[in-house]
Computed example of a mutant assay.
Amino acid sequence: MAQQLLALRQAGVDLEEFLPRVGEMVVNVRDQGVANAARVARDRTEEWVRVLRETLPAGPVREAILASPSWPDMAADMAKLDSRGVDVRGLLAAAYDEGLGVDQAVARVLAAAPATASRDALTSYGPLTTGLDLPMNLDLTDRARALR
């Protein structure tokens, strides 16, 4: 972790500005998860949390769905679809597979295209950027923009 923080600093990231915001993000995600759980319990759609966890593999996609402010509405929609006889598990699995297919297709295109990344973009790629959509023209001189 120390190496990753050093790499961020060398890439021009102001760690004194960045690290406190990480804490805020974690708190916001936690609070949204608690609010979602309360609403799901109130709406009696807890079953769909279990279905989602059983259908999608563990990882950022599944957790992002559960932490989304839209999750309680999605759970209610899944309950409605299920009551109409729709195979919600199959639908979730197919949607996840389609998302993976799109992600893999984009990765193939990006790998085939000549990269003309900025120096800042090239130096910022690393373990902490896995899964992030970094622009090819990343400019770390505008820190607020880069953090957004």
Rank of each mutant, 00 (worst) to 15 (best):
A115C: 01
V40D: 01
D87W: 10
T141D: 10
V34N: 13
R143H: 06
A64L: 12
P69D: 11
L138N: 05
D103W: 05
V34A: 07
M74S: 08
M136P: 04
E24D: 02
A107H: 01
R39K: 12
R39V: 10
V29L: 05
Q3Y: 04
R44F: 13
P20R: 08
A112R: 00
G59Q: 12
R9Y: 07
V102F: 13
Y125N: 00
D120W: 01
A121C: 06
T55P: 02
A2M: 15
W71M: 14
G131Y: 13
A107D: 11
T55K: 10
Q104W: 01
L19P: 00
P114R: 01
D97G: 11
A115H: 01
S118L: 00
Q10F: 03
D133T: 09
P135Y: 00
P57G: 13
L147W: 03
A105F: 13
L52C: 10
N28I: 02
G23A: 11
E98I: 08
D97I: 03
R53L: 14
Q10E: 14
L138I: 08
L128V: 12
P135W: 00
L100T: 07
D142I: 12
L128G: 06
M78P: 00
Q104G: 03
A121W: 00
P127S: 09
A113E: 01
A64P: 01
R145P: 03
A121I: 03
D133V: 06
L15E: 04
D77C: 15
Y125F: 06
A2F: 06
R21C: 06
R145Y: 04
V26W: 03
A75S: 09
A58E: 14
A93C: 08
N137R: 02
A35W: 10
M78T: 02
M78C: 14
N28Y: 02
V88D: 02
Q10N: 08
L81A: 12
V109Y: 05
V51M: 13
A35T: 15
V61Q: 07
A64W: 14
D77N: 08
V22G: 07
D139E: 10
A115L: 00
G99N: 09
E24K: 05
R50T: 11
V29T: 04
R21Q: 10
P57C: 09
L128R: 14
A41M: 07
L140G: 06
A111I: 01
E46T: 15
A35K: 11
V88K: 13
D120C: 07
P69N: 12
Q4A: 14
R62Y: 04
R42Q: 13
R50M: 11
A144F: 05
G131F: 08
A112C: 03
E17L: 08
G126V: 11
L140C: 07
L52E: 00
T45S: 10
V61G: 04
I65G: 02
D139Q: 08
A79V: 03
L5G: 03
